[in-house]
C-alpha cells in the first residue's frame, strides 16, 4: 500500500490517498472530514453529503457482506441514527467512521433479531424489492452483480464463527483498527486479536486444501 499526499484542489488540506499496488483500491482520508463532522453535528447538508459519499459505499458493502436482506434500507437507518445522535458525538473523522460501522453492525444484529421474531414472507420481500426498484433506489443490475460477487466471497468464510466473520469484515471493509473493532463488537482487544488470528489461519488452510480447490470457487475465480 502506498500513501501519497494530495494537496487537494478545493481548499481541503491534508488529503491522504492510500492505494494498494496491483489493485484499484484507494482509500482517501481527507483532513477536511474532521470539519465535516463538526458541521454535520449542526445539521449542515453539505457535511452530511460529504460524509455519506465518503463512508456509504463501504457501509453498504459491510451490510451486504453481513447478510442484510435490505442493505439500502439498513444503510438509510444507519445514517438516520447517526444523524439523530450526532450532537452527542465527540471525535474526529476517524472516530466517526468507527462509529458509523458500529451503528451499521447494530443494524445487522437488529435485522437478524427481527427476522427471528417475525420471519418475513416471500411475498413481502418481493413487494419491498419492487417498491425499491420502482422508486429507482436500487440499480437492480449493479446490485445483483455486486451481491453475487460478495456472496461468493462471504460464502468462503461461512465456516467462521460470527465473531470471527464480524471482526474480519470490520477490519477489512471498515478499515477499523483492533481497538475500534473491539469497541464496535463490544469485545476486548485480545478477543479480537484471537478471533482474527483463528479466522485467517482457518481461511488460509481452507484456501490451500485440495478439497476446497476442487469443490469451491478458487481465489483466482473470485478475483
Amino acid at each position: 500500500m502506498s500513501q501519497t499526499g494530495n494537496p487537494g484542489t478545493d481548499g481541503h488540506f491534508g488529503c491522504l490517498k492510500l492505494s494498494i499496488p496491483g489493485t484499484e483500491f484507494t482509500w482517501v482520508v481527507d483532513a477536511s472530514f474532521d470539519a465535516a463532522v463538526l458541521a454535520a453535528k449542526e445539521g449542515a447538508p453539505w457535511a452530511w453529503e460529504q460524509l455519506y459519499t465518503w463512508l456509504s459505499p463501504r457501509l453498504l458493502g459491510y451490510l451486504r457482506a453481513r447478510g442484510s436482506r435490505d442493505p439500502e434500507g439498513a444503510l438509510g437507518e444507519t445514517w438516520l441514527q447517526l444523524a439523530r445522535n450526532a450532537a452527542t458525538f465527540e471525535g474526529d473523522a476517524t472516530g466517526f467512521r468507527s462509529w458509523a460501522f458500529t451503528v451499521a453492525h447494530h443494524r445487522v444484529i437488529d435485522e437478524a433479531r427481527r427476522r427471528k421474531r417475525t420471519p418475513p414472507t416471500k411475498a413481502l420481500d418481493e413487494v419491498l424489492a419492487e417498491d425499491h426498484q420502482s422508486l429507482g433506489v436500487i440499480d437492480a443490475e449493479n446490485e445483483a452483480l455486486a451481491a453475487v460477487e460478495l456472496d461468493e466471497l462471504v460464502g468462503s468464510i461461512a465456516f467462521l464463527s460470527d465473531l470471527q466473520k464480524s471482526a474480519l469484515l470490520l477490519r477489512i471493509i471498515g478499515d477499523l483498527s483492533v481497538a475500534q473493532t473491539a469497541e464496535a463488537l463490544g469485545k476486548s482487544e485480545s478477543a479480537i486479536k484471537t478471533a482474527q488470528y483463528r479466522a485467517i489461519s482457518t481461511l488460509r488452510d481452507r484456501l490451500e486444501s485440495p478439497a476446497t480447490k476442487q469443490g469451491s470457487p478458487s481465489v483466482t475465480e473470485m478475483t
Binding site: 459505499p57 444503510l75 440499480d139 481465489v219 478475483t223
Partner: peptide, 18 residues
C-alpha cells in the same frame, strides 16, 4: 491466498450507490 481474498472482498464491498 488470504491476501487475494481480502483484496477481492475489499473491492467488491466498495459498491456504488444510486
Amino acid at each position: 491466498g488470504v491476501a487475494t481474498w481480502a483484496a477481492a472482498i475489499r473491492r467488491a464491498s466498495d459498491t456504488s450507490i444510486s
